[in-house]
Simulated scan of single mutants.
Amino acid sequence: MNFNTRKWVKPEDLNPNDSLFGGKLLAWIDEEAALYTIIQLENPRVVTKHMTEINFMSSAKQGDIIELGIEVVKFGKTSLVLKCEARNKMTREIILTVDSITMVNLDENGKPKLHGKTKIEYVKDRFNDK
């Protein structure tokens, strides 16, 4: 799993228990999944269709640094299925896992669009091919 994004837990990210608000973490994950999909499918028009069960395993507190990891589970015809893990950067303790996030590729009218991708591509390799 590639951990490309880090977030610093700040006071505005906390719930009344002084731990990271779950909704804030889910927003970070949704954004990370969208960015990952946009880069993989080379299309800025993607949406989150579905997330499986979200498993909160531990909490984070103010000052913690959270890493978000994304991995491709499968390429569909119009979608990309990912899994995600959030962990504490310093302790490596897992905070949350999501086994499946389905992201859908859209056309300019907001309809599902075939993307033609079958494997992970890295931007550096796209530049080498051109």
Rank of each mutant, 00 (worst) to 15 (best):
R92I: 10
F127L: 14
G116V: 03
N88V: 07
S19E: 08
Y36G: 04
V47I: 14
A33Q: 03
H115E: 06
G23D: 01
M90Y: 12
N55A: 09
Y36S: 03
E121H: 14
N109G: 12
G110N: 05
V73I: 14
N109T: 11
K61E: 11
T78A: 10
V104N: 08
V81P: 08
V46Y: 06
A34D: 06
N109W: 06
D125I: 04
D30N: 09
F21M: 04
Q62H: 10
M90E: 15
L96N: 05
A60R: 02
P44F: 04
F21G: 03
K61M: 10
F21V: 05
T91L: 03
I101W: 05
I29T: 04
D18A: 14
E71F: 06
M51T: 14
L68K: 00
D125E: 11
E93S: 09
F3A: 06
K74I: 08
F56C: 01
M1P: 03
K111G: 07
L82I: 02
L82T: 04
N109Y: 10
I94D: 04
K74P: 08
A34K: 12
E31D: 12
L82M: 11
K77T: 15
E32Q: 06
E31Q: 12
L26H: 03
K77C: 13
I65N: 04
F56W: 09
H50N: 15
K61L: 06
T102M: 10
F127S: 03
R87G: 06
W8F: 15
L96R: 01
L68F: 02
I65P: 00
Y36C: 01
D18I: 06
W8M: 12
E12K: 07
T48P: 04
E71S: 14
D107L: 07
E121G: 09
S58N: 10
N43T: 03
G116N: 01
E108P: 01
G116A: 05
L106P: 03
N109V: 07
A33V: 06
L35S: 08
K117H: 10
K10M: 12
K124E: 15
D18R: 14
T97P: 01
I39T: 11
W8Q: 13
N109C: 07
E108C: 07
Y122R: 14
G22N: 00
R6M: 12
R126V: 03
V9W: 00
P112D: 10
G22I: 00
A27F: 02
L25W: 00
A86I: 00
K61A: 08
C84M: 15
L82K: 07
P112H: 09
E93I: 11
I94F: 03
Q62D: 08
G116S: 02
K130V: 10
V46M: 07
T52V: 05
N109F: 10
I94H: 01
I29W: 01
I94V: 14
N105E: 04
I38G: 02
V98I: 15
A27I: 03
E71H: 10
K119A: 13
L82N: 09
D64N: 11
L96F: 02
T91Q: 03
N43F: 06
N17Q: 13
Q40D: 00
T78F: 05
M51G: 09
V46P: 02
A33C: 13
H50K: 15
I54N: 02
L26T: 04
E121D: 11
S79I: 04
Q40F: 00
N43A: 05
Q62E: 15
